[in-house]
Amino acid sequence: MLSIKDLHVSAEDKPILKGLNLSVNAGEVHAIMGPNGSGKSTMASFLAGREGYHLLRGKVQFKGKDLLSLAPEERAGEGLFLAFQYPVEIPGLGSLQFLKTALQEIRKYRAQEKLKTTEFMKIVHQHAETMGIAMEMLTRPLNEGFSGGEKKRHEIFQMAVLSPSLSILDETDSGLDIDALRTVAKGVNALRAKKNAMILITHYQRLLDYIVPDKVHILFEGQIIKSGSKLLAQELEKKGYEELIASYQKKLSDTSA
């Protein structure tokens, strides 16, 4: 579904991603972990098409298409979804109007018919319930006055309504208390399916207790330095990044010597 090959990306003339390789297949859940500044959020934002990054080298294929040649809305139309680390408040824009427009625009991109309001509301009700989102919250302007937990729950709710094939969750667990984390995890797990894939970006292993990944990758200085099963996350939680990074650097100096 997603194939990233030798990706080099800079921001403000500073290289951030330095040869990233990643391959995600349908049905898989990948976790990407790494210390601050390792390039996790850059990877998420860059894949979604945010401005301000510069591609130096590399290729990204999404469902056989050259992802980087597409505008952000086209990427969403192709089925890519980014759950934002910091969802944006848009004063005056009703959540439902926003979601309906998004869904209609995606359908338009896919040359599908417009969705009737009743069908749209059916989808909304169904997922609002799973995510514990009250209809009252949906009548409020998008993210305006939402608590941190509400914003994150709303992101996953949006993900459920838009039903993407690849979801990238950028530190969705940060700032969540344990109850909110459980709700978010429940929502995410409900969306796991054979035809869908997910990339979870996180600092902590805690989220992975609730959403069990198929693969775990450690990102450091813009490269994946180690990949493994869910056990890698547990190992990391015990030993911390330092030991892992030290052994990586040792290996690096050994090969160059």
């Binding site: 952000p72 969403a76 934002f84 625009e105």
Partner: peptide, 13 residues
């Protein structure tokens, strides 16, 4: 940031 948020949800510019 608001513009990108909407675009990332599939809404054309």
């Amino acid at each position: 940031a608001a513009l990108f948020y909407l675009q990332a949800r599939g809404i054309s510019l």
